[in-house]
Design a protein around this nucleic acid. Structure first.
Lengths: 152, 152
DNA sequence: GAATAATATTTGTCAAGGCAAATATATTCT
DNA sequence: AGAATATATTTGCCTTGACAAATATTATTC
């Protein structure tokens, strides 16, 4: 279709486009795995629970920064996740403005159900790369991230 | 901060998280470049115009698929971009259901203003990689994308 | 060739995130 | 100490995108 532009249409995607595509496939794959495992969580909620499980309790704003989510959006996600009994808002001991967000036992159980999903998706994504290439990919991505962040 | 979990917090990001971070930095950087060049476009609108400029006129649904945007969302983006005079909806010659979306001269001029922004961002992102590494990064990302899409 | 299925576009509805304002508390400066 | 500033959380408002339904047209099947 539209053969008159085929010479132009076959140009390779830029790194930027490629990264966007990979990201959306990763999100899609993870949400599919979660659903297939009976875990009713969206990608953002998965990230929040994962962060709490891996890094331990923290304030809502620390959590928001660490998953790159807006503070207001975080409040609403916490409302939902707390309403479902997956986490708790406790008072912060040193700072009365802040909260200490912590997983409940149910939240931890849920995390244990999701972590195999995460592993499967990452494994599937990297199945065409050997160990050396995986390390290189990570290294390149880290360098790209640093370059973008240091752009002064 | 939160020294009681430092041993866990210093774990490396997964490839998944890393790709998400790179993507959001790329979007941020591109939108900043556009704004600095006086081009009032969001990332999605940039993608649409770029696609039309590079691949030529196409139907709305082809365009939607090629930038991974929902059809309904595309209709509204086209409303906006057409309203600003950047593109036109023409009748499709072979298919009376469909449209032929094409850039206006203003759309083309705008594209010429944005393409240096795109180039600067991609160059900045890859400045810490040499030519070989850039090719490898692209190759790895393509293989990851294929692996995710072929997961049967 | 009529019936059925598929596709293109549009519109309505909803969920999610960004931004800004409001409030409460901490921190810094003088 | 007191004032000014910064940060944490919440809420309201707005934009965007996904999903589903509606309509128009094309493609396929019987």
């Amino acid at each position: 279709m539209s053969p008159s532009h085929s010479s132009l249409s076959f140009q390779k995607d830029s790194i930027g486009v490629l990264i966007g595509l990979v990201r959306s496939e990763l999100v899609r794959a993870l949400e599919a795995e979660l659903q297939a495992s009976g875990v009713d969580l969206r990608f953002t909620q998965f990230l929040i629970l994962k962060r709490l499980a891996v890094a331990g309790p923290m304030s809502a704003s620390e959590l928001a920064r660490s998953v790159e989510l807006d503070g207001g959006a975080m409040t609403r996600q916490l409302d939902q996740l707390e309403g479902r009994g997956l986490l708790r808002r406790q008072p912060h001991e040193q700072d009365r403005r802040a909260l200490r967000i912590e997983l409940t036992p149910l939240g931890r159980t849920t995390w244990e159900q999701m972590t195999p999903c995460n592993d499967r998706v990452l494994k599937a994504a990297q199945k065409a790369l050997d160990d050396t290439e995986r390390e290189q990919l990570r290294d390149y991505l880290e360098r790209v991230l640093t370059a973008l962040r240091d752009k002064n």
